[in-house]
Amino acid sequence: MEKIIRIQSRTVVLDIDNVDTDQIIPARYLTTTGRDGLGEAAFHDWRYAKSGELNPDFVLNHAENRGRTILIAGDNFGCGSSREHAPWALLDIGLKAVISTSIADIFRNNSLKNGFVPVVIDEKPHRWLLANPGAEIAIDLEQAQVELPDGPPCPFEIDRFARYCLMNGVDQLGYLLQQSDRISAWEASH
């Protein structure tokens, strides 16, 4: 996995609370057996009008947002299903991180496993970010802080192990496999 130390970008703001995984990728696109090319389905029913044309009102379709990698979303982002297709789809459209005041558990776990960085910050800086689309910011994993254009950086909590894995490109399956002897011993004693 790619190592992630720092993500710097202008922001894309999706000021909607409780964005669920059925919006991030509708279920009808889950019949795939692969994990590539899901970007086409990302936010599909918001990105496209019924006619199949791009919906010009949806933020991710705005020309100035092309190439931007940090999404600022409303509270409780990623609620709903366990589909890992959600972070796969977001990565496939070029996003690398999401910042919110809360992020649903399974979505957060799935994101961390794929190098999509979920960041939870306090309400105050979050409000500022929502109000200032396109702000140039950075997510620094080493310092566990979000750097804003002005003012002091705002710290965020991230599980130490998850951060280590992101920063060193560690595949967690490898780590688990190293515990095989202990797993065998546990099985033998239960």
Binding site: R35, S81, S82, R83, E84, I106, N109, N110, K113, N114, F161, Q172, L173, Y175, L176, L177, Q179, S180, I183, E187
Partner: peptide, 18 residues
Amino acid sequence: FGIGTTEVGHVLATQCLL
């Protein structure tokens, strides 16, 4: 509890989760 596909792989391979 529910898990994602990467974790499904972890459990298939090791019967454990982190």
